[in-house]
Simulated assay, not measured.
Amino acid sequence: MKYCAFLSMDNLDDFEVYDHLLFKPLKELGWQAEEVSWRNENIDWDSYDAVIIRSPWDYQDDPQTFLKVLEEIEQSEAVLENSLEIVKWNIDKTYLRDLESRGLEIVPSLWYQKFNSDLFPSIFTDLKSAEIVIKPTISAGADNTFRIHKSNYGIFVNDLKSVFKNRPFLVQPFMDNITAEGEFSVFFFGDIYSHTILKTPKTNDFRVQEEHGGRLTLVEPEEDLLKTARAMRDLIDPEPLYTRADYVRTAENTFALMELELIEPSLYFNMDPESPKRFAKVFDEWMEKKLSIQD
């Protein structure tokens, strides 16, 4: 029997988690999996063959400590997936600038090191939008994310000064199709396409996460969406075990990348009954290659 840890957080009671759906298909392939908290300082990482980053959904509160834990895992006998190199690149949303420079379409973005009220109202002009979204460059789960209309930006200034006093952030136009249609998440395991879901926010909200009332639907991706997602995935180096890319349809009917999730994305195994088996098979083959290289 081989042993695998799912890197998690101390308490997931307030979250929707589906990684337990992997336990059975992994066991059928000879893997014993268990959840462990990334904050547990008593874990012997050498006792695992692999550690998969799954649901440490509080890492953004202390990213440096989180990275230190990942460094310890990477230096152990265990194989860390996705790799530390990928995490360091993906943990800050400035990776979007990197992808844009390589020809991929992203949601238009402006980047700032800290907030000051003089940024208004020119932001709306620069982004050619009457409504914007502001969020930290290191964040998760829509934490500290603000949706602001140019008619009432003044009421947000004090909160923005507090949150972004010494914290880098990005600003994007609010994409109307988030509420009109929804946000598409496309999943790959290794280089194998797995499934796509459409996430739509509840009425009078823009956040698509389940924890905020978002609704999920399994969909068949349009050819252009799948082509766009695969082209993006093929640019990632080193190759990730799992990839989730979130897209929104633009006014020009293209698909702009909102987020590339390579650290701890929900992979929504509940939405596609075959996806846990698909992941387990890819992971088992992936680890066979990794462990043979180590030997």
Results as ranks from 00 to 15, higher is better:
residue 24 K to I: 09
residue 273 P to A: 10
residue 25 P to V: 03
residue 53 I to G: 00
residue 88 K to Q: 10
residue 105 E to H: 01
residue 192 I to R: 14
residue 240 P to L: 10
residue 18 Y to L: 11
residue 269 F to H: 00
residue 289 K to E: 15
residue 31 W to E: 10
residue 135 K to E: 01
residue 42 N to W: 14
residue 112 Y to D: 06
residue 154 G to I: 08
residue 173 P to G: 03
residue 284 D to P: 02
residue 270 N to C: 07
residue 243 T to G: 09
residue 122 S to A: 11
residue 20 H to E: 13
residue 22 L to W: 08
residue 96 L to W: 12
residue 1 M to E: 12
residue 68 K to Y: 11
residue 109 S to I: 02
residue 205 D to M: 05
residue 163 V to D: 00
residue 206 F to P: 04
residue 132 I to R: 10
residue 18 Y to M: 11
residue 39 R to M: 11
residue 271 M to Y: 04
residue 292 S to N: 10
residue 115 F to I: 05
residue 203 T to A: 08
residue 37 S to W: 02
residue 181 E to H: 12
residue 194 S to P: 04
residue 155 I to K: 13
residue 190 G to T: 00
residue 92 D to T: 09
residue 44 D to G: 12
residue 66 F to W: 13
residue 163 V to H: 04
residue 256 A to T: 02
residue 99 L to Q: 12
residue 237 D to Q: 10
residue 222 E to S: 03
residue 65 T to K: 11
residue 111 W to P: 00
residue 115 F to G: 01
residue 180 A to E: 15
residue 9 M to T: 13
residue 293 I to W: 06
residue 90 N to L: 15
residue 48 Y to E: 09
residue 33 A to D: 03
residue 92 D to K: 10
residue 227 K to Q: 15
residue 81 E to W: 09
residue 151 S to N: 14
residue 208 V to P: 00
residue 209 Q to T: 02
residue 70 L to T: 00
residue 187 F to N: 06
residue 41 E to H: 11
residue 107 V to K: 03
residue 183 E to L: 04
residue 179 T to S: 04
residue 132 I to Q: 11
residue 73 I to C: 15
residue 163 V to E: 05
residue 216 L to D: 10
residue 117 S to N: 07
residue 247 Y to N: 08
residue 206 F to D: 00
residue 254 T to S: 10
residue 94 T to Q: 15
residue 95 Y to H: 14
residue 195 H to A: 06
residue 92 D to V: 09
residue 282 V to F: 01
residue 251 A to S: 15
residue 232 M to F: 13
residue 88 K to S: 07
residue 196 T to L: 10
residue 80 L to A: 01
residue 233 R to F: 04
residue 153 Y to T: 03
residue 287 M to P: 05
residue 158 N to M: 10
residue 206 F to V: 02
residue 50 A to W: 01
residue 36 V to G: 07
residue 48 Y to N: 11
residue 44 D to P: 06
residue 190 G to V: 04
residue 193 Y to I: 02
residue 277 K to R: 04
residue 36 V to E: 07
residue 140 A to W: 14
residue 59 Y to T: 05
residue 153 Y to I: 11
residue 56 P to K: 01
residue 272 D to G: 02
residue 92 D to R: 14
residue 227 K to P: 12
residue 260 L to G: 02
residue 30 G to C: 02
